[in-house]
């Protein structure tokens, strides 16, 4: 069963065509990695999935329902997104973790906040720290924890490990796999790290120039006969 389906989806801003005729689906409960050169339209595609943007043409369904039948706020709670820059609001780590609940006029208990921090391998003592003082890796983990607070069945991750060292990167990968296993969360993960795309992803989408070039099991990055993808994998088109 597919969690999100794209049918001939195109997206343009003024005269710039950013996505062209994307057709494909993201399988429920699986991790799909999204790879391609910069400017291929990967982030635009993620933003279409949680309604931060709407397609110029074509249809998107989320959990078998047309995306435009969702109330935007409900859609974005259903399809959570961790942004590449991991922006923080001013205040403490706790203030940031509370944010998803606060937006729904609910509260997050200290105990629950500590549990989310533990899930992303951060100490509970960090709760009272100012978010602006976090390191790049800590910021990224708090951003992931904050996205998890909504318990979204679908999670979009936009290059969340690009600023991390190898060890931190590996920890986040393990965490995402754990979330996928534990909650059956559908994950769509943009990454520039092709090794990561293959080891973490059950499936992979390869995008170039706003088009979906190939989709399939992540091993396609090694087995593809497509010359464009082969060149990309060799590092000639990144």
């Amino acid at each position: 069963m597919s969690a999100i389906t794209f049918q001939n989806v195109s997206y343009a801003v003024e005269d710039r065509q950013l996505l062209t005729n994307i057709t494909g689906s993201f399988e429920q409960g699986r991790i799909t990695t999204l790879v391609g050169p910069s400017g291929a339209g990967k982030t635009t595609l993620l933003k279409l999935c949680n309604g931060l943007l709407s397609p110029t043409s074509g249809t998107i369904t989320v959990q078998q329902k047309p995306i435009d039948t969702f109330v935007p706020t409900t859609l974005r709670q259903t399809v959570g997104m961790a942004l590449q820059a991991a922006p923080m609001i001013s205040g403490t780590v706790y203030d940031n973790l509370c944010l998803p609940k606060k937006l729904q006029r609910q509260t997050l208990s200290i105990e629950d906040a500590q549990k989310w921090l533990e899930d992303v391998h951060l100490p509970a003592s960090l709760l009272t720290q100012q978010a602006r003082d976090l390191s790049g890796g800590q910021r990224q983990r708090v951003s992931i924890a904050r996205t998890l607070v909504n318990r979204s069945p679908i999670l979009l991750l936009d290059e969340i490990t690009s600023a991390l060292d190898r060890t931190a990167c590996r920890e986040i990968e393990t965490l995402i796999q754990k979330i996928n296993d534990k909650y059956g969360t559908t994950i769509i993960w943009i990454t520039h790290n092709l090794e990561q795309a293959m080891t973490i992803g059950h499936h992979t989408w390869v995008m170039m120039d706003g088009q979906l070039i190939e989709a399939g099991p992540s091993s396609l990055l090694e087995t593809t006969t497509n010359e464009q993808i082969q060149a990309f994998v060799r590092g000639e088109a990144r």
Binding site: N50, L52, T73, T74, R76, Q77, G80, M81, L83, A85, P87, I89, L99, P100, L103, Q104, R146, T147, N150
Partner: peptide, 13 residues
């Protein structure tokens, strides 16, 4: 702008 986008992406009005 990234703060506005963050709050929208988390389900804010």
């Amino acid at each position: 702008a990234d703060e506005v986008e963050l709050l929208l992406s988390l389900g804010g009005t």
